[in-house]
Nucleic acid binder design. Structure first.
Length: 948
DNA sequence: GGATCTTTTCTTTTT
DNA sequence: GAAAAGATCC
């Protein structure tokens, strides 16, 4: 941090108080220092007081820090600033609604009111449950929307959409969309065509097909389109690029019905929330925005003479607009750094800062369309920058900029020059530069990191600057390990505690997904009602095989030691006591177990939960992966482990950036939702519900949306910024660490990667893992693919989503596969029971998972139709194909017919002497239906029509 | 260089 | 199940 006196750039900004400013304040440039001084400078003017200056931050912590520091720099004291508007957008909105929001909903055509008792829902688990309840009612009231719900995979997706629209300032009113909301939903054809054209540019100077054409190779392969969908060759064209007219053809369609559906759900939910007397965080801003738009007097009363927004790169569209409505003059100052924008998934919009002028103008014009709401001129915008960095050495700063041009994949092409040009270079304040920037890769990444930490501590080659400015050797507390994912951090933490290294994890952790929590859950279930699901896990943990466990469960003859332990647990009075006893017995100590214990204890103290309710609480916590804050608590001199996101704004002498692995960071792949809202294509749906197809309702895929989403650019910019944020946390040294397969980032950074074989002899692992119960039956080896964790996961799964949920289809499939292969199977619901009954009823040989690819020749071209057979049942003269289906409405029946026909011909080829048949088993009602396979000629025709 | 096939992934967290 | 990277074939 900078010294007491501001540097010239800082001083310049502190004194430039009048007018519009966009400040590019890079990492470690003393931003908070400057902003607080600027604030102090403003409030010291005649006639200006704290009430005239709005200072917005993004977290309550940051607001508090600002407030404290302003007290130090200004003539105002703690008390005078206590009520000063130094706030987050959310708390500001909350206050505005508290005081003036009673009738705000009427502006959206809602009769309900906002009152002082309206709660804010903070827990999204709770909100999701409420939303499900709302949807239940909604479906009853509005049966005409049944088809839309049939084409959706879940309600959460719909709630996510509502959250996203709220953040982007698109909301419904009584009979349409508030202000210009609808234009956002319609998308922007022109912008889309630009995007399309860009992606459709042939590559390599015209000799290679465009990226878009390459992407559309899979057009139609993962779904069924209605017959009027264009064929693949029509979409892809026969040259190097996709025919340009495809853009408009895919873009233009009538989405009145879809928009109507989303409108009614959104509007209905707003009413529901208000009737239930709650708002979510997004709705706070939504109503505050509406109120400020509609109530001119209120707006004029609330307007501030000076507005400063910190961390502007984290703002969303609606927050930008709120800023404009709250500013009474053009004394607006937005401070931020686009390079540190890493909250896109929370709808932070990096273009708010990157294209500030343009957005400012556009938003102001939108707001002023029918009345003057933004009363000040939106230009000129003066730019300021802070370029002196008080945190890192010059070599770390130089290195960090390479992160922004690092390739995310081997083949990614980047305009490195353009990126470099947009970066404001930072200059280190210190002349000293002894930084070590190194990279290591090791098969045992955890151990390699721990070994490196051990080597760094006390080594003066990694000297760090002490408070007195003198170099000193590093301690554990100087080191932070940053990772992309929580999982990695948690695992590293566990490994570290095994070796007795002082490591503390800071941030949210999915405590209930840890093995410790699962063990506790198992014992609670045993206590409650000797539940098999509990015993199964406990037996497995003790080393019993699946068959043994099953036998024990069947007879209810549990090992004596375990029964005795159960009785000893029964005597304990508190949940915390039970947890402690369980963890003691299993030797689970360390931070993760502590958090489970603390959470359980606090649940006991703050609620009147019964044991059954506690079990359900833990089950719910596991199901939605809810996180709990882990308290550092491992003493002061410990290595900090954090996710990169959690580390924002912090700094450490030595940063180890871990988990630079190809399969983790950046993440590629991933699915897409059924309803898509994205710039510039607007609101689309991926699946279409059709009534008429076969006399039975069916769901079809929408070819237009498939084409449109293929055109949306896939960018790894935010991943690069994440890398940048991590590196710029470091004051003195940076170590990048990877496992056996380093990612492309690491390969394209200018650093040598050292292969490491960690020497762990220096570590003394704590006590060998002991089994708390002796195994009193002989233990045969499990099947080759047996994994101890599958048992645990399976046991938890059922509690998970009530035995169903998103993994439902996969679970049944997996069950069958394992059952047929004689692999461990514990969890069994109705669907699985159906499948088991079917398999049991078959004699002869059964095989699972036979890949089936049927090569056909269509119009002289070879096409391959692929699939996976769920079960192949062989008897001496027959080969029967069985396919499990869990949901009757997902696909058109002819799709199943086609699939099974492929299997049929493949199996026929493999088993020429057997009579081949194919059938579908609907697991939901146990019904079995024989399919009459299409001939190869018929398949050929089908391929010709669907072309996919 | 394009088509086809195989493998691997589906995060992050604040209000 | 869907998307995208990477490997392999031609």
């Amino acid at each position: 941090m900078s010294g007491v006196e501001p540097n010239p750039e800082q001083r310049d900004l502190i004194e430039a108080t009048e007018g519009l400013y966009l400040v590019d304040a890079g990492a470690g440039t003393g931003k908070t220092f400057t902003v607080t001084h600027r604030y102090a400078n403003v409030v010291e003017r005649d006639g200006i007081g704290p009430d005239d200056v709005l200072l917005v931050t993004f977290t309550n912590n940051a607001a508090e820090e600002m407030r404290e520091r302003i007290v130090r720099h200004s003539e105002y004291g703690v008390r005078e600033l206590a009520d000063a508007p130094i706030r987050t957008f959310h708390s500001l909105s909350h206050d505005i609604l508290d005081e003036h929001g009673h009738d705000a909903p009427t502006f959206l055509g809602l009769d309900e009111t906002i009152t002082g008792s309206t709660r804010i829902i903070e827990d999204d688990v709770v909100e999701r449950a409420l939303f499900r309840e709302f949807v239940g009612q909604f479906v009853d009231d509005r049966p005409e929307y049944e088809p839309f719900f049939a084409a959706l995979s879940g309600t959460t997706e719909l709630l996510d959409l509502i959250t996203e629209l709220s953040a982007k300032g698109v909301f419904p009113d009584a009979d349409g969309w508030y202000r210009d909301g609808e234009s956002h939903l319609d998308g922007d054809l022109e912008a889309f065509e630009t995007l399309f054209a860009e992606l459709n540019e042939p590559r390599n100077g015209g000799s290679r097909q465009s990226r878009l054409r390459r992407k559309l190779y899979r057009y139609g392969e993962n779904g069924t389109y209605l017959p009027e969908a264009p064929e693949k060759r029509e979409i892809r064209g026969d040259g190097k690029r996709v025919p340009p007219e495809v853009a408009e053809r895919a873009f233009e369609d009538d989405r009145t019905a879809l928009k109507g559906f989303v409108h009614d759900v959104f509007h209905g939910y707003l009413g529901f929330a208000l009737r239930r007397n709650y708002l979510n965080f997004g709705f706070l801003q939504l109503f505050a925005f509406v109120l400020l738009c509609e109530d001119r007097d209120l707006r004029e009363r609330l307007e501030y003479e000076y507005v400063m927004v910190d961390e502007f790169q984290d703002s969303s569209a609606i927050q930008f607009k709120l800023t404009l409505l709250l500013a009474g003059t053009n004394n607006v100052c937005a401070v931020g750094d686009w390079k540190q924008s890493i909250y896109g998934f929370q709808y932070a919009d990096v273009d708010n800062i990157r294209e500030f002028d343009e957005r400012l103008e556009r938003f102001a014009a939108e707001l002023n369309r029918d009345a003057e709401r933004v009363t000040f001129p939106t230009s000129p915008v003066e730019r300021k920058r802070l370029t002196r960095n008080y945190r890192s050495t010059q070599s770390i700063l130089d290195f960090s900029t390479h992160a922004l041009t690092a390739r995310a994949t081997k083949r990614e092409s980047l305009d490195a020059e353009a990126i470099t040009e947009s970066i404001t270079p930072l200059t280190a304040d210190t002349d000293r530069d002894h930084s070590r920037i190194e990279a290591l890769a090791s098969e045992d990444e955890h151990e390699a990191i721990l070994a490196r930490i051990d080597a760094i501590v006390g080594d003066d080659a990694y000297a760090v600057e002490g408070d007195d400015g003198e170099y000193r050797v590093p301690e554990y507390g100087d080191i932070a390990v940053l990772t992309r994912t929580r999982d990695f951090g948690r695992d590293l933490l566990d490994t570290a505690s095994e070796y007795g290294l002082p490591v503390a994890y800071e941030g949210g952790i999915e405590v209930f997904r840890t093995d410790a929590a699962k063990l506790l859950l198992a014992w609670l279930r045993i206590l409650e009602r000797d539940a098999d699901r509990g015993w199964a896990l406990v037996l497995e943990e003790a080393g019993y095989t699946v068959d043994e466990a099953r036998a024990i469960l069947d007879r209810g003859a549990y090992p004596e030691a375990m029964v005795a332990f159960r009785e000893s647990l029964r005597e304990l009075e508190t949940f915390g006591g039970v947890a402690r006893r369980v963890f003691d017995r299993y030797g689970r100590e360390g931070p993760t177990a502590d958090v489970v214990l603390e959470t359980v204890q606090s649940v006991h103290e703050t609620t009147t939960f019964t044991r059954g309710e506690l079990i359900r609480f833990i089950e719910a916590a596991i199901a939605d992966g809810s996180t709990h804050e882990v308290d550092a608590g491992a003493g002061t001199n410990a290595v900090t482990v954090q996710t990169i996101h959690a580390t924002k704004g912090l700094e450490y002498p030595i940063v180890i950036l871990a988990n630079m692995n190809a399969d983790r960071f950046p993440s590629t792949g991933g699915g897409a939702s059924d309803v898509v809202y994205a710039d510039p294509i607007g609101l689309r749906r991926r699946t279409v519900y059709s009534e008429e197809a076969h006399g039975v309702p069916h769901v079809y895929d929408d070819w237009r949306t498939d084409v449109l989403t293929a055109c949306l650019p896939r960018s790894y910019d935010e991943e690069r910024r994440l890398l940048y944020v991590a590196i710029t946390r470091a004051e003195s040294h940076v170590v990048l660490a990877a496992g056996a397969d380093p990612n492309a980032f690491l390969e394209s950074l200018p650093v040598d990667v050292e292969s490491v074989d960690p020497d762990l002899s220096a570590f003394r692992p704590e006590d060998e893992e002991r089994s708390p119960f002796t195994v009193d039956v002989p233990v045969p080896d499990g099947p080759a693919s047996y994994s101890p964790h599958t048992f645990i996961d399976d046991a938890v799964f059922e509690g998970d989503v009530g035995g169903r949920g998103m993994e439902f289809g996969t679970a049944v499939h997996e069950f069958a596969e394992r059952y047929v292969r004689d692999e461990p199977v514990v969890h069994e619901g109705d669907d699985e029971a159906n499948v088991r009954a079917l398999i049991d009823s078959l004699d002869g040989e059964k095989r699972a998972e036979v890949d089936a690819f049927l090569p056909l020749t269509v119009d002289g071209e070879r096409v391959t139709i692929g699939g996976v057979i769920d079960l192949l049942h062989l008897t001496p003269d027959r080969a029967e194909i069985v396919d499990y289906k869990t949901d009757l409405t997902r696909h058109a029946e002819d799709e199943y017919e086609k699939q099974l026909s492929v299997y049929y011909h493949v199996v026929e080829g493999v088993h020429p002497d057997r009579e081949v048949s194919a059938s579908i088993l609907y697991t939901r009602d146990g019904e079995r239906r024989e399919i009459d396979p299409l001939s190869e000629a018929e398949l050929r025709d089908l391929v010709r029509t669907h072309r996919g």
